[in-house]
Simulated assay, not measured.
Amino acid sequence: MITVHHLQNSRSQRVLWLLEELGLPYEVKRYERDAQTLLAPPELFKVHPLGKSPVITDEGLTVAESGAIIEYLMDRHAEGVLRPAGGTPERLHYTYWLHYAEGSLMPLLVMTLVFRRIPLSPMPFFVKPIAKALCQKVAATFLKPQIERHLKFIEQHLAQHEWFAGSVLTAADVQMSFPVEAALARGAKPGQYPKMESWLKRVQAREAYQRALATGGPYEIL
């Protein structure tokens, strides 16, 4: 039995979605974030040395990292579904977006979250204006332009493809779901990226996605 070590409001939500799309049996072990730090609880260190989620355990194996989990599940449990055939243009798109999600887009989104939270953290009163000004400068001159460049890139791709790897849903869409949700939730104006919004609506309307939400519990982008 596959066990998903599922952290509240985290990227492990898409692992649940993939399992639902594949129709695989699984169980969920839930972990709550620390209310102050929003970090994972110490219990996750018992599952994996880095103490982070997502992590799955399956037949004595422990697999961490979203991309590695997806590749493991596709190799071990998928039978010709949710992954294009090797040697095709669609497979190249699939591989690219599977790695792009965490390798290129998510670091920028995480940095944005961190720099938004720094001025809200406890610190001496005389330091707070400096910290706030520094964070705003980084956001305005580096993070915002970079993220906008990436979102325009994604929008252009989805203007030419119904799904990230082509004309059908694949596990690359599962991998891209979290960063797209996060990007649209963190400042994108309604209607600014219509292709991304349309794609996300189709994702969220899928029965497997809805079942994953019901199983994983309340979910919101931090």
Rank of each mutant, 00 (worst) to 15 (best):
G51E: 05
A64I: 03
Q13D: 03
L19Q: 03
D173P: 08
M196C: 15
R206D: 03
R211V: 13
H157I: 13
Y209H: 13
L92N: 07
E102L: 08
E197S: 10
E65D: 01
N9L: 02
Y219N: 15
L98R: 12
L16D: 04
G67T: 06
Q8H: 13
F115T: 13
A40Y: 04
Y94A: 00
I154Q: 07
E43C: 02
V180T: 11
P122L: 04
A205F: 09
G216V: 13
D173L: 02
I147A: 03
A68T: 10
L50N: 05
S10I: 12
T215S: 15
A214V: 15
K46N: 05
H99S: 10
M74G: 01
V4Y: 04
F45M: 08
A182K: 13
G86W: 08
V114W: 04
M111L: 15
K128Q: 07
A185L: 07
W17D: 00
L24Q: 12
G87C: 09
A35W: 14
R116G: 02
M74K: 06
V55H: 02
C135W: 12
S53R: 06
L98V: 11
I221D: 10
T3H: 06
F153I: 05
K52I: 08
L184T: 08
V203H: 09
Q8D: 06
A214G: 03
Q204E: 12
V110W: 03
I154H: 11
L120T: 08
G60T: 01
G166P: 03
V114C: 14
G51M: 07
R83T: 10
L39D: 13
M106V: 14
L7C: 02
A188Q: 11
P122Q: 06
L73G: 00
T215Y: 01
A35N: 06
R33A: 03
V4M: 07
L120I: 07
K128H: 12
G217M: 15
L105P: 06
L184N: 06
E197H: 13
A188L: 14
I70M: 02
E148W: 05
K201M: 08
P179F: 04
H5V: 00
R83F: 05
E65W: 01
L73K: 01
G86F: 08
Q175D: 05
V174Q: 05
E148L: 06
Y100E: 00
T95A: 14
V55L: 04
Q8T: 11
L92G: 02
F164G: 01
Y94C: 00
T57I: 02
Q204P: 10
P107M: 00
K29C: 06
